[in-house]
Amino acid sequence: MKVTLKVWRQKSRNTPGEFKTYESPALNPNMSFLEMLDVVNEELANRGEEPIAFDHDCREGICGTCSLVIDGKPHGPHQGVATCQTYMRSFKNGDEIVVEPFRARAFPLVKDLVVDRKALDRIQHAGGFISVRTGSAPDANNILVPKENADLAMDAAQCIGCGACVAACKNASAMLFVAAKVSHLGLLPQGQPERHRRVKAMVDQMDAEGFGGCTVTGSCEAVCPKEISLDFIARMNRDYAAALIRGEPKPIAGSGAG
């Protein structure tokens, strides 16, 4: 099979970009989408043109590095998989496929199809953790976690941090990502002490990064390679409201060291 690719090419953040059209060489339907790009890139390189820059790493759908909006859909036509697990058999011979980078103000473009998603890390820095020093943990079975909570936390924890939710949302909102992180820790007993501080800090950082807000369109859920549910956004909204109502903690009165 062969396909025609319309690919976004942009040398760097500050130079204008444009779509360029490439005819693929003969492809095997069992190729992954990224392997197809590899093949196209080899051809480009052999012709002396610059290969298409795209992000990828594990190629088994877990590292969250690959991105791409394929024919208007982040991670391509299938549900519940990342671009690296999209196979050419999902397309027809002669198809024209439009390939674009994830677009969001919070994801500045690096080159061609590569964007910078460090904003997601900064949200994690703001509070995506349980403060436990190495060596200070109690025996693991001292903390009982109801199976249904553990399972639900796991549903949220599956998030691979790819940012497809942002790419899909018409508002470029990172709510699903943040909600998954907040819910994962907020559902576990270990996460309770910092639960409200965490949700407040992470949501505020999300706003500061310039992501849009949630209008509950459901696109994020539809493209999420791990099919993370909108339920978690509601859970986060609930937690954030509780955090607002509780307000900032009372400042500690000064007490000198003993």
């Binding site: 436990v132 200070s136 693991a140 079975n141 976690v145 199976k147 553990a150 936390a153 796991m154 820790l185």
Partner: peptide, 22 residues
């Protein structure tokens, strides 16, 4: 053994039995 303790305390959602044990 310390690793499991550490990870559980960090909130790693290990599989659980119905009683809440690992």
């Amino acid at each position: 053994v310390n690793i499991i303790d550490q990870c559980a305390a960090q909130g790693v959602p290990f599989a659980r039995e119905y009683g809440g044990l690992l």
